[in-house]
């Protein structure tokens, strides 16, 4: 069984899709050399026409991709920094996302926006450490946050083949995860995955936090039986899968690397309690409201949701229902 890193899984997905479909092309900043270490070797393999370095013009190249998609191609854009998504939010939401409806179904805009290294990169401070996936779920753009190498491969492939815009967040905290992967296949959108079965509480963890949730589940295993649910896609969300899990465990804790107000955790909790009667109030572990990640490593860590906070939330949830 070959061992594959998350980062290489993304490279493999890009390479496989570029090879499979002439309509696929890649653009972004420093993608030919592969500064992100994700697009490594692709320019050599597929040529600089299809693996295009762009000037630093995020708004123009994002809408350039929209135009190319309207003309029948399948662009993939790599963004160097998660906060660049703020710069192109208008181009994605107001144009790429709205064109199919506004034209009355005359077109599709199959663009993939790939963000390798989303969230904290430790030491990159305030403007490089955001995790704005909830914004895209809010506006209804398909949003995926894979946690494992197999899902990174499978969801990126699916994103590229999908007929609507898709944002792919590849968390910095997951980029170096390695796993034994024998089968690289597309992963369907909107389908979560239970990484660990349990009886007492369902922990929903997003992206790299899945690995933290699994570690905590192991730590507390002698006291609490934790089920770990990884939604994989944030929009559309696998609410059926999660409701089924919570209906069994009766308790819900969400671990989310977004800010608290209007965050994914809030949406997940609301969607579950609309359908399932819980044994205890649900809990969420998130970044604080309005968080800006401070530079000093200890401060950066303090603002991110952590394992100790999750363990506490699990214990409190158990206590609340006893």
């Amino acid at each position: 069984m070959p061992r594959l890193s998350y980062r290489r899984a993304l490279t493999r997905a890009l390479g496989d899709e570029l090879a499979r479909d002439e309509a696929v092309f890649l653009l972004g900043e420093d993608v030919q050399v592969g500064a992100s270490l994700v697009t490594t070797g692709l320019a050599k393999r597929f040529g600089t026409e299809r693996v295009r370095d762009t000037p630093l013009s995020e708004q123009a190249f994002t809408s350039f991709a929209t135009g190319a998609a309207l003309a029948g191609l399948r662009p993939v854009i790599e963004f160097q920094i998660p906060s660049l998504l703020f710069l192109v939010f208008e181009q994605i939401v107001n144009h790429a996302h709205k064109f199919p409806l506004m034209t009355g179904g005359q077109c599709s805009v199959p663009v993939t926006y790939l963000v390798p290294g989303s969230g904290s990169r430790t030491g990159w401070a305030g403007q490089h450490s955001d995790h704005p996936y909830s914004l895209f779920a809010h506006v209804g753009v398909v949003t995926v946050v894979p946690a494992t190498p197999a899902d990174a491969y499978g969801l990126l492939v699916t994103a590229i083949r999908h007929d609507d815009p898709v944002v792919v967040f590849a968390p910095a905290g997951a980029m170096d995860v390695r796993a034994d992967v024998d089968d690289l296949t597309p992963v369907p959108l909107g389908r979560g995955r239970i990484h660990r079965f349990g009886d007492d509480v369902t922990v929903v963890a997003i992206g790299h936090l899945v690995h933290d949730a699994l570690a905590v589940a192991e730590e507390v295993a002698d006291q609490v039986s934790v089920e770990v649910f990884d939604p994989r896609t944030l929009y559309p969300f696998d609410i059926d899968g999660l409701a089924e899990s919570v209906a069994r465990t009766g308790r819900l804790v969400v671990l989310d690397d977004g800010n608290r107000s209007c965050g994914m955790a809030a949406e997940i909790i609301a969607s579950v309690v609309e359908r399932v009667r819980l044994l205890a109030p649900p809990r969420r572990v998130t970044r604080p409201d309005g968080a800006v990640l401070p530079f000093a490593p200890a401060l950066d860590r303090a603002v991110q949701p952590g394992r100790a906070q999750l363990a506490t939330a699990i214990h409190l949830t158990m206590k609340d229902s006893s």
């Binding site: 994002t62 350039f64 991709a65 929209t66 135009g67 309207l70 003309a71 191609l73």
Partner: peptide, 12 residues
């Protein structure tokens, strides 16, 4: 908004 969209479409 139209300039970048048209540029991408024509290129494609």
């Amino acid at each position: 908004a139209s300039g970048a969209i048209i540029t991408g479409a024509v290129w494609a």
